[in-house]
Structure formats: C-alpha cells, structure tokens
Amino acid sequence: MWKLLKIELFKIFRRPRTYIAFAAIAAIITLIQLAFYSDGEAFLQFGMQSLKETFDINGKIVNGYLVCYVILQTLLIHVPLLIALIAGDAVAGEANMGTLRLLLTKPVSRSQFMWTKFMATVIYTLLLLVFMAALALFLSVSIFGTSDLIILKSETIVILDRHDILWRYFGAFGFAAIAMTTVASLAFLLSVFAENSIGPIVATMSIVILFTILTTMDIPFFNAIKPFLFTNHMLNWKGFFEEPVNYREVLKSATILIGHIVFFVFTAIAIFKKKDILS
C-alpha cells in the first residue's frame, strides 16, 4: 500500500499543474499581505466607521492574526477549485492517458487502487493547506506582529485576546482540512465517471460555485435549502472565532462533511469496482 501511495504521490508531484495551486495561493496571500502593509489601516477605517462613532479604539488593529483571518475568508472559498484540479484527475487522468487498464492488470485490487488514489489526493490537499497556513499565519505574524484579533461581523464585533487565538487557527485549519477533503472526494467520485479529467474538474468547480452562490444569497427561498449544502458547512471554520466557541455547531458541520466524504468515496469505490474499464 505504502509503495503504491509513493507511486501516486510521485505522479502527482511530477505534473506541473500540481504547482499551479501552490503558486496561486502564494500569489494571492502575498498580494493581500502587501495590500494590508501599504493600506490596511484605511481598509479597516471603512469597516469600523459606525463603531468609531461610539468608541475610541486603541491598539494594533492591523496585525498578523487579522491578516490571516482575512486571507482565510478570501481563500477558503476558492481553494476547492484548486483542489479539484488534482482530485478530478485522479482516475479520469489515467483513463485519458490509457493507463487505467494497464494498471488494473497488476495484482492490486480495485479497492486498494482507489484507496491509494484517494489517499494521495488527501495528502496533496493537506500539503496545500499546510503551505497556506505557513504563509497566511506564520508569515503574516512575522511581518505584522501579534495583537488582539478584532473580527467585524455584520451585526456583532468579536475581540479575541492575543493569547487565545493560535489554538483557534489550528482548529480552523483542521476543520478546513475536512472541508477541502470533502471537495476532493466529490471530484474523486466524478472522476470515476469520466474518460477525460476536464469533465470532473469542471463539474466539481461548477457544483462548488453553484452551491457557494446559493450559500451567499440571502433569499428566504434559498435559506430553506442552505442547511443541506455542504458548501454552507464548509464555512463553519469561523465557529472557532466565536466567543465562546459554539462547539455543537462546529461538530455538527464537521460530522456532516465527514458524512459527505464517506458517501462520495465509498460510492466512487463501489462504482469503480463494477465499472467496465474500456480505456
């Protein structure tokens, strides 16, 4: 199994497209950090206009923790699209290159083959998140320093003590790992149906975009279906930045996402096991 996994990882990291996601994330994070470095105070003044009518705020508002929070808010919506690039290619890519039949002639069960593919995709997803965490959190903290984190929400303001933040980021990244794995498993499932990787990649992106738009729109008709959209639960990493943390809500979302992962992966394996491989 480990040998198979190494081969899969070698295949993933040999492809140039794998590094597109790392480059895109590095570029976006650097741009956000640059923007905050040059004009972060002015950006926040706009958000805190109504607050400053009533309160005087002292202290280092623009700090590494805040910059990381803004980066996560911006990026965690878009990272699923980058993950789909690799996960959607997992099985369909082999079919496209005509190596699928050849691979299955080896003394490896179809289940083992699929588990290895999925685990390689998960490792890629986790590495992408670790890379993102290193840049968004640790680089931001080293550039901007630390202070309390002020989170502006539409109806409330949360201020978290600087000694009470780091664990929340670890929790949020852990939750994001589950959320991103959900997208990876969806792309992995769609990959089973296609003979070309473009199909599952575009289909995954379309589903994520559609669901995200439905999640974003504040229309009563859509509100009824929002609890059933996995994209809605993917946003609950923010639960770690509530005071106090609503563990019930965070655990509920994490459980629903894990349920999606299990469903997508087992369905993908079940379908693949019965599939007539012609390519």
Partner: peptide
C-alpha cells in the same frame, strides 16, 4: 463580544486620560 482584559489606566492633570491594553486592543466609549 470581548473577554475581560487587564488594562493600564493613565491620568495626568488637567484632563489627560487613557486606557491601554498591553500589547492588545482596548475599546472605550467615545
């Protein structure tokens, strides 16, 4: 939503007054 926090309060005659949170953010009514 903000937890109770340790602050330092400074006063100087005739009317200088400030509340600071060491290394953090303090918020006071205008």
């Amino acid at each position: 939503k903000v937890p109770p926090s340790a602050v330092k309060v400074y006063y100087k005659k005739p009317d200088k007054f400030n509340v600071k949170k060491d290394g953090g953010i303090s918020i006071l009514p205008k």
